[in-house]
Design a protein around this nucleic acid. Structure first.
Lengths: 150, 150
DNA sequence: GAGACATATTTGCCTTGACAAATATATATC
DNA sequence: GATATATATTTGTCAAGGCAAATATGTCTC
């Protein structure tokens, strides 16, 4: 229906671009939902809090890797979230170079509030996909990621 | 094998994060491949050139939309590529507000050189996916994108 | 235990890209 | 055809995040 002829208005996006488009729309949708709850947080900040809430305290490096951020970016993300009182940096008793990042009571309660928010957005976004298709999507992406990282 | 218990080291990524991780690895891989060809271009610049090469001259707005960029970002992208001599801005004869962006001879020949580069990277990345799975992946992503844009 | 090397975090610098305001032109309405 | 509104591009401003250097600490080898 849309062959790659020069006359075709919308040739299929390359995978790289498509991924970027979907991600930025997801970010936009989630940030809007968050804002409607009266909370002032960006996508990455929400993801960091969710991660900490899900797996518990961890080092800055671990958190950076799981969010796909560089160390420098994470330092600044932590600054913002600590400033807002949602988490705190504690020294790691085993390793004096490292930090143990943990949610404050306020951070945990925010995560409870925000809990459904993110699920709602993700569900709405994947409305047209069946349960199986959603699983496959995640699976394909994880396989590509694994390949790219060798 | 990896239930969402607090003791699990690597709970599944959220879709939003996973998309970002895959995209940034793809970008990194492509930029490295490009650099190895001795060409100094970033991911977005390559995508813009490929797009122009594929569908022919178009307005700045069209190009921006197909790359998922804002107008301002596109102006600066065009500045860089025009500076390097790969494209030129011509006035649109039908609409004096608009531009007609077209590749120069140098831009076209660069695209020929780069042609296989991007395919190689994408193929390597999707090595573990079958033809059908690759088609499904694109399909799922496009459906999500359509949903998000209402 | 001294030196060499690896790792965790922070900081500085820089590029990319979003958003909004400005400008120019097109289109529609009266 | 004058006015209002919509669209195309450019520019200013800003925040996010990548990379590299700096610092502190851990680990390994002799």
């Amino acid at each position: 229906m849309c062959p790659t002829t020069p006359t075709c208005d919308k040739p299929p996006e390359s995978l790289g671009i498509l991924l970027g488009l979907v991600k930025s729309e997801l970010v936009r949708a989630l940030e809007q939902e968050i804002a409607e709850q009266g909370v002032e947080l960006r996508f990455s900040q929400v993801q960091a809090l969710k991660r900490l809430n899900l797996v518990g305290p961890m080092s800055a490096g671990e958190l950076a890797r799981s969010l796909g951020h560089d160390g420098g970016a994470l330092t600044r993300l932590l600054d913002q979230l600590e400033e807002k009182g949602y988490l705190r940096r504690k020294p790691d008793p085993q390793d004096r170079r490292a930090l143990r990042i943990e949610l404050t009571a306020s951070g945990k309660s925010l995560c409870r509030e925000l809990g459904g928010c993110s699920d709602r957005v993700m569900n709405a976004a994947q409305k047209s996909l069946s349960k199986d298709e959603r699983r496959h999507l995640i699976d394909y992406l994880q396989r590509i990621l694994t390949t790219l990282r060798q």
